[in-house]
Design a protein around this nucleic acid. Structure first.
Length: 292
DNA sequence: AAAAGCGCCAACCGCCGGGCT
DNA sequence: AAGCCCGGCGGTTGGCGCTTT
């Protein structure tokens, strides 16, 4: 796709042809940072020219907001941030910039990428529309409880306050007639090898017919105020990359409603091993390596 | 070791709304 | 009221790097 003339209406054809595209160089970054430090941001088209950058104003704005701005966070999203994204997306849908406003240091682009690469990937695995009620229910029943557990683990391990996360967990348990261990039972199978892999499975119902066990979303915004959430030790750490990864909710996409679903473990030995209490539990990709 | 496949993310694009003239 | 410009937004894509074959 080629840029059209009208999007760079502030420049003539010759200038348009000279505009640079693609990855930013260190020199360009320095120019932009220096200029904004001295003159502030805004008026992006004239800023681009004044700073001596052969870029569109839009490109400069994007580079600044998504990458160069001093308080921009890099690295994986924490479980808390992921929870917040899930909650806010369920409220607002694809309003990325609005969601980003509630995650200081994170950009709409980053959140959008997270949603598309991680969350939507799961929807594809499940063969259901990620905007469907069914997928929202799946998130509530499987992903969010797992994230909450991880939040609690990280909160306690960092010896910070766990008050709000404990409250959230309590709310979860109140809403669920089942024990936590039951809730953590889900099908584990390779996305590439799950078909026909039915040996040594145990089966358990994860929901009663009332549907009441679906947890209500706690107020994640409140969680964000938790001091643990601001613990710098929790930032930029790969081990907080929580992904429901490759687990497969067998038949989920075909079931008429949540109550009809069976969630199956493919390896009961793994349950008994106590592995669920470790970080491995949170990384299904590692789990598959373990199983091989 | 090389090729192919895949996932992630930075950057681009078109569209839209608001402000200004 | 109409046209223009600008900034913001959400969707899309190209390329890099890692993994698998």
């Amino acid at each position: 796709m080629r840029a059209t003339k009208n999007m760079t209406s502030s420049c003539n054809e010759e200038e348009f042809d000279q505009l640079k595209r693609g990855p930013w160089t260190l020199e360009e970054d320095n120019l932009l940072i220096r200029y904004i430090t001295c003159h502030g941001e805004g008026r992006w088209n004239s800023l681009a020219k004044s700073a001596g950058l052969k870029r569109t104003g839009k490109s400069c704005r994007l580079r600044w907001l998504n990458y160069l701005k001093p308080d921009t966070k890099r690295g994986n999203l924490t479980p808390q941030e992921q929870l917040l994204i899930l909650e806010l997306h369920s409220k607002w849908g694809n309003r990325w910039s609005k969601i980003a406003q509630h995650l200081p240091g994170r950009t709409d682009n980053e959140i959008k990428n997270y949603w598309r690469t991680r969350v939507q990937k799961q929807a594809r695995h499940l063969k259901i529309d990620c905007s469907s009620k069914r997928f929202v229910e799946a998130l509530h029943q499987f992903w969010i409880p797992r994230l909450l557990e991880k939040v609690e683990q990280t909160s306690s391990s960092s010896s910070a306050s766990t008050a709000s996360t404990s409250t959230m967990k309590t709310e979860q348990n109140k809403l669920s007639p089942h024990s936590q261990s039951e809730q953590t039972l889900f099908a584990v199978s390779s996305p590439t090898t799950n078909q026909g892999s039915t040996n040594s499975r145990s089966s358990i119902r994860a929901s009663d017919s009332s549907g009441k066990m679906l947890p209500q979303l706690p107020e994640m915004s409140q969680l964000y105020e938790d001091t643990a959430f601001h613990d710098s030790s929790l930032q930029h750490d790969d081990c907080y990359n929580v992904d429901i990864g490759s687990f497969d909710m067998m038949g989920f996409g075909q079931a008429d409603d949540m109550s009809a679903l069976n969630f199956q473990m493919t390896d009961t030995d793994w349950i008994a091993s106590g592995g669920m209490a470790t970080d491995t539990y949170w990384n299904m990709d590692e789990l598959w390596q373990f199983r091989k």
